[in-house]
Structures are given as C-alpha cells and as structure tokens.
Amino acid sequence: MMTCLCDAFFDDVARATHEVLESLGIEVIVPESQTCCGQPAFNGGDWASARQVIRHTLNVFQGDCPIIVPSGSCAAMSFHGALLAHEKETDLPQVQAFGARTWEICDFLRNGLGIESWEGRLDARVAIHSSCHSRGTGTPEAIRTLVGSIAGVTLLDFTQPEQCCGFGGTFSVTFPHISGSMGRLKIDSVRATHPDLLVSGDMSCLMHLNGLAEKQGSPLPVKHAIQVLRDARVTPVTVQ
C-alpha cells in the first residue's frame, strides 16, 4: 500500500520500500486501484465516508499476502482505526483480517522478517522522530534498531521525544496556530542536537516539520527511514 501522500508527493519513499523488499527477495505487487486508507475522513469525524474508502481498500487488497505500508499512521489506521469505524458494522471480521495483515515497513523488516541489523554505511548524526500513531507498535524500536545498526550512524536523543509534531491531518489546518507552535517546538528540540538527518517512519510528520522549517527560512534535512535503509546499502543481507 503506497499511501496517498507518497502517491502524490513522495514517490521515492514508496520506491525505496519497493526496492528494499525486492532486494530481500520478496515479490512486490502494487494494486493499481489503491487510493487511500481512509484516515482523513475517519479523523475528520466523517465515518460514513471513511467506511466507504476503507471498503474500497479492502476490496483492492484481497487475498492473504502481507500488506506493507511506508507509514506508521496508515498502518495504525488499518489495524486500529478501521476497526473502530466498523465496530457496529457486519463486515467487521473482514476489516479485522485486513488489519491483521497490515505492517508498517520497518516493523515488518524487524519483527516480521526478524532482521536484527542493517548492513551498509552512512556517516551521519541521525535524529529519529517517532510518529505518534506508531505508539505502542513495533515501529519505533524497529527504526531505532535498524537505522542505529548502520555503520557510521550516530543516533541523537533530543528532548521531549514523546511530544507530537503537530501535524494531525486536518488538525494542521483547523488549528493552524497550535499546530504550528507544536511543530516549532519539535524543530527547536531537534535542531539543538545538530543532526545531519531527521528520520521518521511517517512522511506526514516530516512534510509538516520541513514545511514549517522552510517557511522559517532553513529547511530540515529529512528522510524516511526506508530511504535511509535503502541508501545505506545496495547488497542485501540474508534473511533468517
């Protein structure tokens, strides 16, 4: 599942996901009819619309292959939000089954495939922003472990890592001041550690943070975790 953001803006993130999976000997299928996980309407309170989009997605991703997403947020939508939206619906079991097959990419590499470390090299000081929707999932630890294991990487700890960046989907436009202030606080704490790269498992957070930073006049060097993994090496490791 490529996510609507990567479909529209961040094609290289979807491509990196594709390339990394292929490099591990996995066949990647990209259903043409996919659109979005339904989260915008779900978070916006329009659950009736959200359910229509979720059902479309369910339809597109029939079968039993794992569904891999380069976003902790869209993954959480699939295994948590969609269930909530369907809690009183008769097709809840199908939604549950769909959710159970959905993985955020780094979680999949680390906990699905059991990869413990990543070969390659990247000489960089890296700050990692854990997106809020991956709270309580395997993703934050997976990103830290995999990115942290790349030779040459120094992980940086910034203050108040648990604080939200302020994106929050429609929240970012209906609460522009609060959202902007939240983002600037995050940028300040990240910048204080002087990173070469700010890495996350969600492009939405990075788009918001970099958008704010650019508006302030100095862009942030941001990258999705899967781009970092791809770029660090070309030759695959063997999977246990």
Partner: peptide
C-alpha cells in the same frame, strides 16, 4: 504556516 512539497502525483505508479 508551511511550504508544500512539489507535486509528484503518480510517479511511483
């Protein structure tokens, strides 16, 4: 509040 990244719709497809 923010800049928008450039549109690259459909490139990955």
């Amino acid at each position: 509040q923010r800049t928008l990244p450039s549109w690259r719709g459909g490139r990955y497809r």
